[in-house]
Amino acid sequence: ETKLRGASLFDEDHAYTRTLREFERLVGEKYDGDVSFDMSLNGELGDESDFVTFLQQGVAIDYAIMAPSNMATFAPSIPLMDMPFLFRDLEHWDTALASGVMAPLEAELLAKANIRVIGYAGGGVRNLASAEPIGNMDELTGHKMRVMGAPIQAQVFSAIKAAPSAIAYNEVYNAIQTGVIAGFENEAASIQNLKFYEVAPNITLTRHAITVRPLVMSESSFSALPADLQAAVLAAGAEAGAFGRKLESTQDGEKLQEMADAGQIKVQEFAGRDELLKLVIPVQDAYAAELGATELLEAIRSK
């Protein structure tokens, strides 16, 4: 009997955990032999960057879902996968992910980090959340906001005239509440789960990023599996990813609406989003050129 172990940062209800459960179900369905699963939830085994370590080494766990940026120490091009303003809209995002356009990044990840991408979940739309409303270029200029700790994030938000700042995620709530920063950017689920709306109730629909969350497996574990189980894992990964994308992109809009209906957030459009795009494109181009990924960026844009 084969026993596979997984890890999730969240509880059973979260879209990523449900995606992983769907993956487990599908593998069991597609594979004729005996296979069982054991998943650690709620970040008991660490955060996503710890999962990367475990997967790379082939210890402790076999599969997980994570943000691409966590794998950047091994493969610097990976954060390109869901950098801000990469996808025009949900349709573009879904087409791109299903098209296999990310294959060069997958190959890099396999070679440098010993981690195999078996599917793509994600689908959270990231918007600005702030203590005061940010509705136009003037209000955005100099806006002190927390960004994720990757250079491209800081570069993009600097390009659109905001003042990005490095603050650990678990200090964000306190930092906004006390005014160390004025806001941050995230998807609806996080804003709802961690009650960020209490300190940052103003949501600006910049829709600057649509998250890509690869469903990954340790190559050490994968290569040790029998061939028919490998085939089942690959098929289940792709299907579970599609399941997860649909689930999260549907939930995202619903969650935003729920918070708006409950009066927890005030939502507004950003006046002149096209202007932001103009500012960002040169930064994206330079970033891709630095990584030698210009062709890839063009390929994603043209999907």
Binding site: T53, T73, F74, P151
Partner: peptide, 15 residues
């Protein structure tokens, strides 16, 4: 060795 195959995200320093 595991550190050697990684570079830090911000400073791109070899880990």
């Amino acid at each position: 060795k595991f550190g050697y195959i990684q570079n830090s995200v911000m400073m791109r320093a070899n880990m």
